[in-house]
Design a protein around this nucleic acid. Sequence first.
DNA 1: GCCTAATAGTTGTTTTTGTAACTAACAAGG
DNA 2: CCTTGTTAGTTACAAAAACAACTATTAGGC
Lengths: 141, 141
Amino acid sequence: MSDFDLRGFLPYLLNQAAEAASLDFQQYYKDRYGMLRTEWRVLFHLGIFERMTASDISARARIHKTKISRAVSRLEARRFLERTRDMEDRRVEWLSLTQAGQAAYRDLRGVAARYDRALEEEIGADDMAALKRILQVLAAR
Amino acid sequence: MSDFDLRGFLPYLLNQAAEAASLDFQQYYKDRYGMLRTEWRVLFHLGIFERMTASDISARARIHKTKISRAVSRLEARRFLERTRDMEDRRVEWLSLTQAGQAAYRDLRGVAARYDRALEEEIGADDMAALKRILQVLAAR
DNA sequence: GCCTAATAGTTGTTTTTGTAACTAACAAGG
DNA sequence: CCTTGTTAGTTACAAAAACAACTATTAGGC
């Protein structure tokens, strides 16, 4: 048996941890709102920034524009967001949450915050802070 | 603007970091060997443990058995692995790498090790150790 | 103004994944 | 033995993602 340890290989380890965490949160947004992963991310971006274009979200969240486009369509169909055409530049459309979208955002934001706090209790505040700091470096590259 | 910070939400942050890291490594196994993510994982498990069943890999890597099944088929078609039926229990088949599979494994293992070392230089040995320790806790849940 | 290039966003097609149902082989209780 | 349940692995179908090509609009050089 080779002595290479997969669990020491960061891309593998990161994916294992990320998948476990994603699955936990998925229960909520999938069961309660029938959302997909890209959809809750778009919802959160609009919840936080209130008014963005699809390109803004794509750049900030690093999600491909076709994924954004389809997520926006679905969120619009379910009346979670609205689009308004920009009158200066008519290629652009501004996205913002409806009342229902804001309510869903606040609900899920609460779930997310509680999840984070629970995890912090589990692994300790110091490790949590270190983890976030290092991950932000990795994610920013 | 809401004061919630997505980059403080661990499932989101983990995914961002994991995707960034995965993309780097993907270049290699995709371009050189035409492999998918599940396939290099299966390859590595067999490279490390030499002889496993699909169920073994599924349990250890936490990959669904249908994904394993498909990855094994593709790896077999490309002559990276071989199957042998267990004579005691004929439901079971043992998987092992061919010469070509072992060569690919050694090559990719080297790439992985170098990638990890480069990352360690970038973020520092202490942070790297802390990161791996914490991620292993998260992934193990 | 007019041509070319760039940008915003969408749509179509192909891969890949997820879910459930399936076959085959074994195990255990009666 | 023979039913019932379990395990190993595959296959079929639906959902989602990746990738490329597309429309519409604007910007910039000449």
